[in-house]
Each structure stands twice: as structure tokens, then as C-alpha cells.
């Protein structure tokens, strides 16, 4: 049996990804996380001196705090198996990537383990976020200078 034939057989036999079910679960999980965050934002707007715009910073920090508790008590991986992208895409998923790596590598010490492995999973998100922000902002600034677009 050659590779092509086997790949076809493998596709036939392997259970299919339940796409609709996964999409629904991702939608629900992601939606609920964002809804919770919206309530957290309301809390900061009501009890502290934050506007709708500025409340997003403490909200993000609070959500990552929740993510720490869920990761530490071993619940985030269960949410992840259920929700898929629904729990990976929100900032809590970013938090989970950092925090799970930090906890895992505690056994190698705080400097060599936690310190150097914390961004093992999430580092690439920062890299591509920064680089794309740089490119986008550079292009836009040049275009503004040339008078093609305005701020």
C-alpha cells in the first residue's frame, strides 16, 4: 500500500471531527467568557473611576486572574477539551498558556524553569503581535505622511 492510498484509508477510518458540534461549543464557551468579562467591566465602571474605554485594562487583568485560578485547580484543561478555540482564543487562553507553562516548569526552579519557559507557548503570540503592529503602524504612518490617508 502506498502513501496516497493509505492516507485515503486513514481518512475513511478515523472518526470525523464533529465540526458543527465543535463550532457550537466554541461559540458558547467564547461567548460566555466575553460575557463574564463584560460584567467585570461593568463592575470597574460602577465602583471605580473607569470609562467604557479604560475599563478594558483592569478587565483583562481580572480575566487572567480567573484563568490563573482555573489553571491552578486543573479546570482550564477540562474547559479547553470542551470549548476548543472558545477557551483558547480569549485572553484567558493566553493566560492559561503562560500560567500552565509556569506551573509545569516549576520543577526546574524559578529562574531556569519558570522564567525561561513561561512564554514557551505564548511567546509566538507576542512576537507576531508586535511585528505585525510595527508593520501596520509603519505603513499607515508613511501613508499619512504621503497624504494618502489621514489618522
Amino acid at each position: 500500500m502506498d502513501e496516497k492510498k493509505y492516507a485515503k484509508l486513514e481518512q475513511e477510518i478515523s472518526p470525523k471531527i464533529p465540526l458543527m458540534k465543535n463550532i457550537l461549543k466554541a461559540f458558547l464557551t467564547g461567548g460566555i467568557i466575553c460575557l463574564v468579562a463584560q460584567f467585570v467591566a461593568l463592575f470597574y465602571m460602577t465602583y471605580f473611576d473607569f470609562t467604557e474605554r479604560t475599563a478594558s485594562n483592569p478587565t483583562v487583568a481580572t480575566m487572567i486572574f480567573f484563568s490563573m485560578l482555573l489553571t491552578g485547580f486543573g479546570l482550564y484543561k477540562k474547559i479547553g477539551q470542551f470549548g476548543g478555540a472558545g477557551s483558547a482564543v480569549p485572553i484567558t487562553g493566553f493566560g492559561n498558556a503562560v500560567i500552565s507553562a509556569a506551573i509545569e516548569h516549576k520543577s526546574e526552579g524559578y529562574v531556569l524553569g519558570v522564567g525561561s519557559n513561561m512564554f514557551k507557548l505564548a511567546g509566538s503570540v507576542i512576537l507576531f503581535g508586535v511585528f505585525s503592529a510595527f508593520v501596520v503602524a509603519l505603513i499607515k504612518t508613511i501613508l499619512v505622511k504621503l497624504g494618502v490617508v489621514s489618522w
Partner: peptide, 17 residues
């Protein structure tokens, strides 16, 4: 798991296979 895939507490979705 931590060596071949992800940290144990990382929430990734594994397929049925």
C-alpha cells in the same frame, strides 16, 4: 505529555483519534 505535547494544565482540545 509535557515532553511531547503541552504542559499538563494547558487547555488544548484533543481529537477523538
Amino acid at each position: 505529555e509535557r515532553q511531547f505535547r503541552y504542559p499538563v494544565e494547558y487547555g488544548s482540545q484533543k481529537p477523538a483519534t
